[in-house]
Design a protein around this nucleic acid. Structure first.
Ligand code: ZN
Ligand code: ZN
Ligand code: ZN
Ligand code: ZN
Lengths: 168, 168
DNA sequence: GTGTAAAAAGATATATTATAACATTTTAGG
DNA sequence: CCTAAAATGTTATAATATATCTTTTTACAC
């Protein structure tokens, strides 16, 4: 099992998350002969500014501010598409939003823990679960190609906060 | 493990699926003192006309034809909302579409096998997977409230068809 | 360095999915 | 019947995503 849930749910030196993500992105671009342009890097940075998923139009607004000029939706969606294809970010379907992938190199299972309170998203890879999904698919003669596993609930902080205010 | 994948992926007497779904719906409405109105039943029927998910605007078009008058989006979304709340249908996030639930009474895991070729959707409940998701969440101190597990791939028929045409 | 083709980004319009707000009709129960 | 609540109708609009065509930037051959 591989997860970034500790990082997501606890105070930490987040600049290291950002730097690591950008370094990985540059490596992957180099390896695949893909271009990390200004717009694409800006979108990736924005998606790593927190461990929360951002929608395309949130990205648009932040990009426009960043570049001090209006940015149109296609620009944002193109960057998103590029980053998705390289596996650098994921789409969170239940939120119509996007988040940086913490381990874009490893085989991973697209398993996310989404806090409905604060919006934080942790990613997890779980080989046993993947294996079970694969074998369940096989039993049904279903040829599994990809998966989207989204868990919604409360992150530790939000849960603690809810408990505390219950006791008022 | 509980699944309707056999029914979804093989020829069968589908009128029984429809009738069973409507009977279950009426039972649940009676039990919960909810009203199964004309519009709601029509939407449920449409979602059971095949084992494929339908989008809100596909439903709208079919409803308009059925009732021979224009049906506005809010009407469709209200029916969808009602049916979702009773657990009679599910939203498939990766498709922005909706499908009838084959076992609305049982605890179920919102695990779907979606054929990217023909659009068929089978639902599955898998206690071991649910247990693992729960314990993985606990390890991360994540309070799991709900889940959306969507597997994409090829159903048996579409896989066979693809294989056959590969051999041309 | 200049020319060239491919890639990326800009610009405009529009498609698709979903909701807000308020008016009217239908329904259940007294 | 009367009434209040529930459901539906109506209109407008928000939120998300894509199509199409033009212009700019980039890589790289010469
Ligand atoms: Zn961080
Ligand atoms: Zn939280
Ligand atoms: Zn059937
Ligand atoms: Zn199929």
């Amino acid at each position: 099992m591989l997860t970034n849930s500790r990082l997501v749910h606890q105070p930490h030196d987040h600049s290291r998350c950002i730097n690591a993500a950008l370094a990985r992105a540059n490596d992957i671009c180099a390896a695949k002969n893909a271009r990390m342009t200004t717009t694409r890097e800006a979108v990736l940075r924005l998606l790593w500014q927190s461990h929360k998923a951002l929608g395309a139009y949130q990205l648009q607004a932040q990009l426009s501010e960043l570049f001090n000029k209006p940015i149109a939706p296609p620009t944002v969606y193109r960057a998103i598409e590029f980053l998705l294809e390289l596996g650098l970010i994921h789409r969170i379907h239940s939120l119509n939003a996007y988040i940086g992938c913490p381990f874009p190199n490893s085989e991973h299972s697209n398993l996310f823990m989404i806090c409905t309170q604060c919006g934080s998203v942790a990613e997890m890879t779980h080989n046993t679960i993947n294996g079970l999904l694969q074998s369940a698919s096989e039993k049904a003669n279903f040829t599994l190609k990809s998966q989207s596993l989204e868990l919604s609930g409360l992150c530790p902080q939000c849960f603690d906060h809810a408990e505390t205010s219950d006791n008022d």
